[in-house]
Design a protein around this nucleic acid. Sequence first.
DNA 1: TAATATATAGACTAGTCGGTTTATTAATAG
DNA 2: CTATTAATAAACCGACTAGTCTATATATTA
Lengths: 190, 190
Amino acid sequence: MKEKENAKDKLIKTASKLFQLQGYHGTGLNQILKESGAPKGSLYYHFPGGKEQLALESVQFTAQSIIKQINEGLNQSTDPIQAIQGFINDLAERFTKESAEEGIPIAAIALETSLSSETLRKACQTAYGSYQDIFSQKLIDAGFKVEKARELGVFLNALIEGSFLLSFTTGTNQPLQIAAEQIPTILKGS
Amino acid sequence: MKEKENAKDKLIKTASKLFQLQGYHGTGLNQILKESGAPKGSLYYHFPGGKEQLALESVQFTAQSIIKQINEGLNQSTDPIQAIQGFINDLAERFTKESAEEGIPIAAIALETSLSSETLRKACQTAYGSYQDIFSQKLIDAGFKVEKARELGVFLNALIEGSFLLSFTTGTNQPLQIAAEQIPTILKGS
DNA sequence: TAATATATAGACTAGTCGGTTTATTAATAG
DNA sequence: CTATTAATAAACCGACTAGTCTATATATTA
């Protein structure tokens, strides 16, 4: 039952990885083509919209993967404090400068293209919204007020993205660890 | 007393703005040249290291400006909670999608170049460290334990960067507002 | 087998990239 | 007034960019 990877999927996977590591403009189509093994003709057959369409589908692909990871992480505990803290600690553990085969999921694309491509901006916005909803729902289920839970969803999303950015820039997972540490304070105080 | 702007300063200012808005790879030298009015010969006279050197000095220039802003913001109140909350609220107020003549100070460069240019990575790391130190010092002055203050400095830096990223992506200042709102909870609980 | 989508293959183009080079102008010193 | 340095000006370069094009396989279906 060998998973016969088709060219389209390979392109999306390769592009997702490279966009995360090098950003949108820092990643050329030639590099994506070379690493995925697909020829240029295939790219424009599957993605007639060119680089932007490829980036759009890459963002959506990445978002789905992250959504799954958050869901799995938060299901580790019914207590939202423990669940969220554990999730961020998992991120911290998985993070090491050396094994940095992944960048920050979609932040680079969001930063680079928000002003130049409304399509990509919206895709990133949607992705972030999805992350926030998962956190919010976990808090609502635990008895938090809906409005408060929504705010905390945004807050947690921001905190994680920022901690990731700092970890990425400094090459240590300390910022993520510190973020995890503060979770009980934040959620208990609310 | 007209400030006669020399070509070097104009280049740094223009480059800083464009790198923030479009990222490192998304900003070409030609655009920087055109918007600053300087010719190409001048660029390589003042920055023999080329684009990377220009980006390095732009990051340092931007960092100095941000450091000043944080210092001024935090001096608005002796109470660290009020001071920091006020600072973030100021950021939120200043932020509007329309008047988005500025991007996120150095985040785009940090994300795009951390893996490809150790020079730029370190410059961003240094900048972030400076921000954190200001927050930490404010907390230490107010009686926080040194170790705790340091952690909170990193935490606040991460929170602000992440909130900025979300505000930038969504086009509203709501994420920054939410961050400001949570400051008392975070600092009182520590 | 013939006809028809589906997908691959890669040469090719026009334009832009960062960077180099040479020439010229402006400012300053002797 | 001349010699020297500081700075500007822009033509030019090879490499690379995203994207187009035509040709060729490879399935699928009749």
